[in-house]
């Protein structure tokens, strides 16, 4: 029904899809670059990110009169800022990627469970959603870190709990709506099991809304991770992430602002790009959210 009604629109919509606004193209370009950097980190770093160069401590970047040897300058121990930046980008993107995937899978699964079983299961899921939504996640994350201590696996898992409730809500609501529609009932009548109905029929139909939510979660996790790492409670040295670098650079803000400016701009440009892309995707894929 819904598809038939919109059929004449699809052609013009596809045409619009191909014509990218300048901002979105720039955002896509930047994100492409970030992905290349994340995957090719080993090949791209001019130095090891922990290598010390004590003779060239706090050397300024090229733009501020530095040398080609360290294009983005060095930090207080003479470590190359560019190399650290590349490794940090990979770390931050990896955490955000895993966090987003965990949150989306967990939330969607719980939303399906709630919509499938209704009754007590649904009440339980709804209560958990209310609880999660009523506490700022930053506080939950901080208390979990306080109680459990910190390691990278726990930290990534913790990021995966960020905003799962958004997916649970969307998945539950859309599944309830889908169950009312003909197609889910038709497949059920044909004898398909719940796994098949949810995985092959309902999930593809609600995927666009979930993907749009992922473009919200991803930058949120980058910001959360970098905030916690900035406070010294996230990624622990010798590993490094963007927030971590800003946190260390803060102490040299008067003498060597570049240590902090490079990762800070990477955070801002990346989250900005994803948000622009997400806004644009939302307009294209999911007119209901506008």
């Amino acid at each position: 029904m819904a598809i038939a009604e919109h059929a004449p629109e699809t052609i013009s919509r596809r045409r619009r899809f191909l014509k990218l606004p300048v901002g979105v193209s720039l955002a896509l370009g930047w994100l492409g670059l970030m992905i290349v950097v994340a995957f090719g980190a080993e090949l791209l770093t001019p130095y090891s990110f922990t290598a010390l160069d004590l003779k060239a401590r706090l050397s300024p970047p090229l733009l501020m009169g530095g040398s080609l040897a360290h294009p983005l300058g060095t930090d207080e121990l003479g470590r190359d800022v560019l190399s650290r930046l590349i490794v940090s980008i990979r770390m931050s993107l990896l955490i955000a990627l895993f966090g987003t995937i965990i949150a989306a899978s967990l939330g969607t699964a719980l939303g399906f469970l709630a919509a499938h079983f209704r009754g007590k299961v649904e009440q339980l899921v709804l209560m958990a959603i209310d609880f999660q939504a009523s506490m700022p996640f930053m506080i939950i994350a901080l208390s979990v870190l306080a109680f459990f201590g910190n390691n990278l696996v726990l930290f990534i898992a913790l990021m995966g709990f960020h905003s799962w409730e958004r997916y649970a809500r969307i998945a539950r609501g859309l599944t309830l709506a889908a169950n009312e529609q003909g197609y889910a009932a038709a497949v059920r009548q044909l004898g398909a099991g719940p796994g098949r109905i949810y995985g092959l029929h309902i999930l593809p139909n609600i995927a666009s809304t979930l993907i749009v939510s992922m473009t919200l979660t991803f930058p949120e996790i980058i910001l959360l991770e970098s905030g916690l790492s900035f406070l010294g409670l996230g990624v622990q040295p010798p590993l490094t992430s963007l927030g971590n670098m800003v946190g260390y650079g803060r102490e040299y803000i008067t003498r060597a602002p570049w240590i902090m400016l490079a990762p800070a701009s990477a955070i801002v440009v990346t989250t900005l790009s994803i948000s622009l892309l997400g806004d644009w995707l939302r307009d294209r894929l999911d007119p209901t959210l506008r």
Binding site: L223, G227, I253, T254, V268
Partner: peptide, 22 residues
Amino acid sequence: SVAGFTMPSFVLALLLVLVFAV
């Protein structure tokens, strides 16, 4: 408002420090 969404508070704080304090 897009800038407000995407700029982490610690970055904004440090930029303000850099300009108004340093």
